[in-house]
């Protein structure tokens, strides 16, 4: 099987953020992560593109992303003191949206750092 090779890939498992990983992947999963440490290998190899999770859940029941987004927006909007929390295992681009959303919401904003 022909594997796609990605050079200089970046590992986001821990704070070291190594950017010299070579990934060998097919369409559904990564088979090799050259240059990654034990933790990094586990991180890269454990993901697949298979849809193992529902697109969204509302009260534990499957829902569409659009429905879930609307419910989320309603709840955050109605709240008097919403909290936006986490932002560790995600991209800067998402983090910027989170900060913008917290600003708009008039809510609390916090990351793992404060633990």
């Amino acid at each position: 099987m022909d594997l796609k090779v990605i050079d200089h890939a970046t590992c986001t498992f821990c704070g070291c953020v190594c950017d010299d990983i070579q990934l060998h992947a097919d369409d559904t999963r990564i088979h090799k992560a050259k240059g990654a440490c034990v933790l990094g290998k586990a991180w890269f190899l454990n993901h697949t593109t298979e849809r193992n999770c529902p697109a969204a859940l509302i009260d534990g029941k499957e829902a569409t992303v659009e429905e879930a987004i609307q419910v989320a927006a309603d709840l955050l909007y109605e709240a008097d003191m919403p909290l936006v929390y986490g932002m560790s295992n995600t991209t800067c681009e998402a983090q910027r949206e989170c900060v913008a959303m917290a600003d708009l919401l008039g809510g609390l904003l916090d990351s793992h750092t404060s633990l």
Partner: peptide, 18 residues
């Protein structure tokens, strides 16, 4: 966050990447 949650100072939480 921990202090806010333990005291119950928030009434809706958005969690991302955690």
């Amino acid at each position: 966050t921990v202090d806010v949650l333990v005291r119950g100072d928030t009434d809706c939480v958005f969690v991302i990447g955690a």
